[in-house]
Amino acid sequence: MTKKLGWFLAGGLLVAVLLAGVVSNFASSSPDGLDATAREGCTFNAEGEITGGTCIAQEEGEHQLGDSPLADYGIRGVGNSFVSTLLAGTAGVLITFGVGAGLFWVARRRQGTDA
């Protein structure tokens, strides 16, 4: 890997960390297109539990890994939501880069082989 590519990657990662850690604090908190469609027709209480009606999300189950320390893009135990999102977003970017780049590196075509 050349030094020039290294700088590009570092710059790109910095942008991604800023987007995930900082800008995401200003993202819309409305349900997304899928979630909004799934909730339409049901009524919800303050905790987000379905109280009545008919909708796609009616039979929705809990996430098997809902107790993950990073669940819902926050760090469990961190009270300040800005700090929580900052840390979770940064961790997500770095983990995704590490996992992705690592797997792609292992799978890459070696020079001199045609596999």
């Binding site: 890997m1 590519l5 990657l9 790109g12 990662l13 942008v15 991604a16 960390v17 987007l19 995930a20 800008v23 995401s24 993202a27 819309s28 908190s29 409305s30 997304d32 893009y73 977003g89 997500g92 970017v93 770095l94 995704t96 880069f97 590490g98 996992v99 992705g100 780049a101 690592g102 792609f104 590196w105 799978a107 890459r108 075509r109 020079q111 596999a115």
Partner: peptide, 27 residues
């Protein structure tokens, strides 16, 4: 993918994944 993945594309692909993760947080 192995045909495409060389020493330049592999880290770039990691960055693309990380970038998509970040932007998916921006509703």
């Amino acid at each position: 993918a192995r045909n495409d993945l060389d020493e330049r594309l592999a880290p770039m692909a990691g960055l693309v994944a990380a970038f998509i993760f970040a932007v998916q947080m921006l509703n």
